[in-house]
Design a protein around this nucleic acid. Sequence first.
RNA 1: UCCCCAUUAGCUCAGUCGGUAGAGCAGGUGACUGUUAAUCACCUUGUCCUUGGUUCGAGUCCGAGAUGGGGAGCCA
Length: 462
Amino acid sequence: MKRMRTRIKELIANGTKGSDYVVSGWVRSLRLSKEIAFIVINDGSDVDGIQVVAESDLANFEQIGRIGTGSALTVEGRLLESPGAGQKWEIHSISITIIGMADGNYPLQKKRHSFEYLRSIAHLRPRTNTFGAIFRLRSKLAQAVHRFFSEQNFLYVQTPIITASDCEGAGELFRVTTLDASNPPLLGCRTDFNQDFFGQKSGLTVSGQLEGELFALAFGDIYTFGPTFRAENSNTARHASEFWMIEPEMAFSDLADDADLAEKFVRYLCRFALEECTDDMAFFDRHIESGLLERIRRVAEADFVRMEYGEAIELLKKSGTTFTYPVDWGVDLQTEHERYITEQIVGGPAFILNYPKNIKAFYMRLNDDDRTVAAMDLLVPKVGEIIGGSQREERLDRLELRMAELGIAQEPLWWYLDSRRWGSCPHAGFGLGFERMLMYLSGMDNIRDVIPFPRTPRHCEF
RNA sequence: UCCCCAUUAGCUCAGUCGGUAGAGCAGGUGACUGUUAAUCACCUUGUCCUUGGUUCGAGUCCGAGAUGGGGAGCCA
């Protein structure tokens, strides 16, 4: 009878000494001698994998000597304590079946590769220790997002990926069209989008916020969690053209409630990573960023600093530091300012609240001072802005005035304005970049290394 | 999009003053009964990113382009 394969993580955690098991995985390391071979195989369930001991009495021992790193094997053998120093357990093989050979051209070697090189072989990098740990964390963390909001009784809403609303400004939207780009139908000298698939210009969503607000005004507390697309020509380690965003929205809530939720959420995710992804987090602490565990532990425990925008400006001015971009009330905070605040002044996560209205979006609620809006950013060391949120303008007249000031057409957003027409109420929400959270938790420096198959300008391979 | 840096063997990199290229790892062959990035011996591998130019002679100097990286802007 064919025995079921046991996942290596499960085997190491709950295996019985002296019992027989079947494990399958990919060869990470081979150490051969005439009479004995040591083969480390990994099946993706944990960082370490398990050492397989093969002795020369195996029928295919000679053949095993010719396999390369990366080969797929199924091993049947006995779980025993390892006399060697590097591992607690090992499997003494009864039989080894070579499932898929890998020859010497296999691009992953038994050594450290640069992340740049591994990006060029993104189809194989999940088989490395680092990317194994990252994508296990990513999977777990996605589940933690749902668990958190489920515990808080938030409704999960799937906002559309294809949309016709282009509220945050044209140019950053990926066009969705079935028209022939080389020969589009014309209306005068311009493309006639009335003849396009949806009868109008459409594109990939840049945010589910506006639709999220509509659901918040029916269900109270809601969140979205899905892919988001930006066609901006951003070439940084923190931007991607396709990324995942978590956007909660709460009715009958103000900016302070919003910050409370954001803080609770971020701390929950930190605690979750420490408790539920212990081995992978320890791996990051060892190999990616020394001191990571301590840093995350502090975030999970300490209260976040809250600072008014005006206060932040004063602190920056008084810092005595010369910035490339001069600081004054009214300017947007540049990366150098944000990093100074979170890294030098605070030394941890910090909310900046109530920004000048002129540097923020139309839907943010105008404060009583008439010059700031109820906006907030959460800044964290290294990554910078991880959350952007606001209390939304619930007063129809103010919203229409603001749209007029910014030259935003009301007609395409008639449905959004309707929400302020009937049963409007104070509400607030934020967007958390899922990949930025992953960077923060893993210590990885580049967003392209926390996305399975990243899309950035000029890169759409795999 | 702007500014800076890089591009040499499959990978990571060295290459002096301008004189036609080298190491470690990987790979191959052999040795080895407990290895841990196994070890030891021997061996193989090059469009020096491309393209113009300077020069008797360019991996090396100059121009242009491509690709990658870092920083900035935009943001999550």
